[in-house]
Amino acid sequence: MALAKAELVEYLYKMVEAAQGKKQLKAMDLQKAVLKEHPDQDKNMIKMAIKELIDSGRCVYTYFGGSFIEIPHVEGAAKH
C-alpha cells in the first residue's frame, strides 16, 4: 500500500541513513526501492518527499562523479 507523505519522508531518510558510508544512492535508486516495496506509490510524491528531505537540511545532494543523496557531513576535500 502506498505510504502517506510523512511516512514516505521517514522511509526515505532511513534508507539514506542505512546506506551512509556504504553505498551512495541516487534519487532514482530511492524511487526504484520505494516502488519495489510500494508499487502503487505516486512517483511525483516520491520526488516531493526527496525535496522535503533536502529543503529541511536533513539530507544533502553530493557530487562524486554523479549526484547522490546523503546525510550532511564534512567532506574529505575540505579537511585541512
Partner: peptide
C-alpha cells in the same frame, strides 16, 4: 586543486 562534492546552497543540488 581538490574537487569538493558537498557544498551548495540550501535546497539546491546543482
Amino acid at each position: 586543486w581538490k574537487h569538493g562534492g558537498i557544498v551548495g546552497v540550501l535546497g539546491y543540488g546543482s
